Simulated assay, not measured.
Amino acid sequence: MTISVYLPLILALPLAVAARRIAARGAPGPAAWTLTATAVLAAAASTWSLVMLALTMLDDLPPLAALDDHPTLELPEPVPGAVALLAGLLLICGTLRLAADVHRRVGTNRRLRAIGEPIHDLVIADWSAPMAVAVPGTARSPGHLLVTTGILRLLSTDERQVVFAHERAHLAHRHHRLTAAAAAAAALNPLLIPVRTAVEFLVERWADEDAAADVGDRDLTAQAVARATLAASGSGAGPVLSIGGSAAVQRVQALIRPTPAPLRRRLAGPALLAATIVAVAAAATEAFVDLARAWL
């Protein structure tokens, strides 16, 4: 097999290196979609490479093993057995990480939905812990907001409107799907963990910008984000979308500045990387198919 089968395993590195810089500039929406899509593609390609490498272990099983030393056959050599075994182990580890992340997200959302039935898309829990989160919907019910009396007591009326607008933006744009997809990619390929972090930051920035546009006051939004984040820190809500979010200092700084421009040129790098990943994965698949035909 050619070197192309190994390249998808490391092509996630350029995306991981650039993710933080991409997330720091321009409108958050296009960046969140681009990073997530490229990360999913990179994870799929690296996983497929591991599958192809692991499948070469089949040449050690009968009846293919007997052909390996056949005097009249010149079969192409697959990868070394140790490489194939390592690929299989990495596949198992990635699958277990993915299953654990999905189980955690599903369990957290199930517990949040069980807290109460929403009235006009809102559940108010009588808890002292300050928390405000967007609870994703299901096929049978739409998503809703969950806020506690603890956070409502800490915020002014105007700041509450910011919180509600922020959480509704999460639901409107289905940010839970983006963060779940980025987390799945990082579970399959740990090189993509910085991309997962960047996407989590970007969806919070996206919701911040929507909230600022909704209330018409960027300074008020920055103030509400700062107070809610400080209050909700350490709430332990799990993998949910909340106004607490991540990197609160950077979010507040961004809200103090003017509304960001799209800056779509910064997304050319991930788009080019995605095309490269597709081309390399196609070349690796072609080499694998040729190998399989020779053996079978």
Results as ranks from 00 to 15, higher is better:
81 G>F: 05
150 G>T: 03
263 L>Q: 14
211 A>M: 09
198 A>N: 13
1 M>A: 13
49 S>H: 12
236 G>E: 02
18 A>K: 10
22 I>M: 09
94 G>L: 00
278 V>A: 15
116 G>F: 05
26 G>V: 10
213 A>M: 10
103 H>F: 04
159 E>P: 05
233 S>I: 04
269 G>E: 14
13 L>E: 12
271 A>Y: 09
292 A>H: 00
236 G>K: 05
195 V>C: 00
45 A>S: 14
98 L>A: 15
284 A>I: 06
285 T>C: 14
40 V>I: 07
290 D>S: 14
237 A>P: 04
140 R>L: 05
176 H>N: 13
184 A>L: 00
11 L>W: 05
234 G>A: 10
16 A>D: 09
217 D>G: 11
98 L>Y: 03
194 P>E: 08
57 M>L: 15
268 A>S: 13
67 L>T: 02
155 L>W: 07
106 V>L: 12
216 G>S: 06
145 L>N: 03
239 P>K: 01
65 A>K: 10
212 A>I: 08
149 T>V: 09
63 P>F: 06
265 R>Y: 11
128 S>M: 08
277 I>V: 11
273 L>M: 09
21 R>A: 15
227 R>K: 15
204 E>H: 14
248 A>I: 00
265 R>N: 08
269 G>H: 10
264 R>Y: 10
15 L>N: 02
215 V>I: 14
225 V>Q: 02
5 V>Q: 04
10 I>H: 11
286 E>S: 13
212 A>D: 02
91 L>V: 14
194 P>I: 08
244 G>I: 03
233 S>V: 07
247 A>D: 10
36 T>H: 09
106 V>G: 01
84 A>N: 10
239 P>W: 01
49 S>F: 13
6 Y>C: 12
29 G>R: 09
172 A>M: 07
224 A>N: 07
120 H>R: 13
155 L>Q: 04
118 P>W: 01
289 V>F: 04
223 Q>K: 13
203 V>T: 11
203 V>K: 00
281 A>N: 07
246 S>I: 08
42 A>S: 15
71 P>W: 13
73 L>D: 13
254 A>D: 03
66 A>G: 08
63 P>I: 04
157 T>A: 15
278 V>Q: 12
207 A>L: 07
166 H>R: 02
293 R>A: 14
256 I>K: 11
276 T>H: 09
20 R>C: 09
271 A>W: 14
208 D>F: 12
239 P>D: 06
114 A>L: 03
263 L>I: 05
58 L>P: 02
225 V>D: 03
177 R>D: 03
88 G>M: 12
191 L>I: 15
190 P>D: 02
117 E>P: 03
64 L>G: 01
96 L>R: 09
70 H>I: 08
131 M>V: 05
22 I>H: 01
213 A>N: 00
27 A>I: 05
35 L>E: 06
262 P>F: 11
25 R>Y: 03
131 M>F: 04
53 L>F: 12
166 H>Y: 08
94 G>Q: 02
22 I>S: 09
167 E>I: 01
93 C>Q: 14
60 D>V: 04
199 V>A: 04
69 D>K: 12
56 T>A: 08
6 Y>K: 10
152 L>R: 13
59 D>S: 11
23 A>G: 11
214 D>H: 09
104 R>Q: 13
202 L>Y: 07
